[in-house]
Computed example of a mutant assay.
Amino acid sequence: MNPIINSTFSANMALISNALAAYTYISDHPERAALFFVCGVCLGLFLTLFALVVQISCRTDCQPRQRPPAKKRARPADSSSDSSDSDSDWDTTSDLSARRHRRFERTLNMNVFTSAEELERAQRLEERERIIREIWMNGQPDIPGTRSLNRYY
């Protein structure tokens, strides 16, 4: 018999045998199989969420930086290499913090509302939540034996 056909046949038989063994195990232990399935789905969702968070947070920070053309400054001849290293470290950290600050300002200046109606609706909702919080804070009963500061606010 041909060895290629024989190895293919044995691989197919092993696959069928493993599938029947899995079916038998699942039919004998349905609760355990369901638990493994749910754990697998939860683990997959967690890993997907983690990958998404890493991608979003590293999108701007992990891109190669494009340095602006360096301005040539006249340095004194007696400056040591230690001072130039500390200057470059300071420039790198200040550049990173400046980029983060600019990104934060961009998110603050973004207009998330597409219309004036949505903005007004959001402001009304915020005002309602503030009123409800205030009513809740003022309406708490004073429990004897405890000193509640809610009545003073």
Rank of each mutant, 00 (worst) to 15 (best):
Q66A: 06
T93V: 14
H101A: 15
S84Y: 07
R99N: 12
I143H: 01
D89R: 08
L45P: 00
K72N: 04
R121P: 01
N109V: 06
I143T: 11
F104C: 09
S57T: 01
D85R: 04
K71M: 10
F50W: 09
A77K: 04
R124I: 14
R124H: 11
R99F: 07
M110L: 15
M137N: 10
A70S: 07
L96W: 09
I135G: 01
C62G: 10
L125A: 13
E127G: 01
M110N: 14
S81T: 15
L47M: 09
G139Q: 02
R100M: 10
D61Y: 02
A98C: 10
G145Y: 00
L47W: 03
P144S: 15
P69D: 09
E118R: 06
Q66Y: 02
L108V: 10
L45I: 13
D78Y: 08
C62W: 05
E105Q: 13
D78V: 08
A98K: 03
E127F: 06
S57M: 00
I56A: 07
S83A: 14
T48P: 00
E120H: 00
H101G: 08
E126K: 01
A51M: 06
R106A: 15
L108W: 04
S79F: 11
S88K: 06
F50A: 15
R102E: 12
N109K: 12
L49F: 13
C58L: 10
R121T: 12
I131Y: 02
R75T: 14
L45N: 01
D82C: 06
S88D: 06
L96I: 12
L47C: 05
R106V: 10
L52V: 12
V53Y: 02
W90Y: 11
R130K: 10
D89E: 11
P69T: 13
P141A: 13
W136D: 13
V112L: 11
D85T: 11
Q123Y: 05
A98Y: 02
W90I: 08
S97D: 03
L47T: 03
D78H: 13
T146V: 10
L125I: 10
K71R: 13
K71I: 15
V54S: 06
H101I: 15
V112T: 07
I56M: 03
A77M: 01
D87P: 00
A70H: 02
R102D: 12
R75S: 13
V53K: 03
Q123F: 07
P69W: 04
P144C: 03
P144N: 05
A122P: 00
A98E: 07
R121I: 04
K72Y: 02
T60I: 06
E118S: 12
A70M: 03
S94G: 02
I132H: 00
D85Q: 09
R67A: 13
R99C: 11
F104E: 09
A116G: 02
G145R: 03
L45H: 02
T93D: 04
I135M: 11
R59D: 04
A116F: 03
E134K: 04
F50P: 00
L96R: 08
R106H: 14
W90P: 00
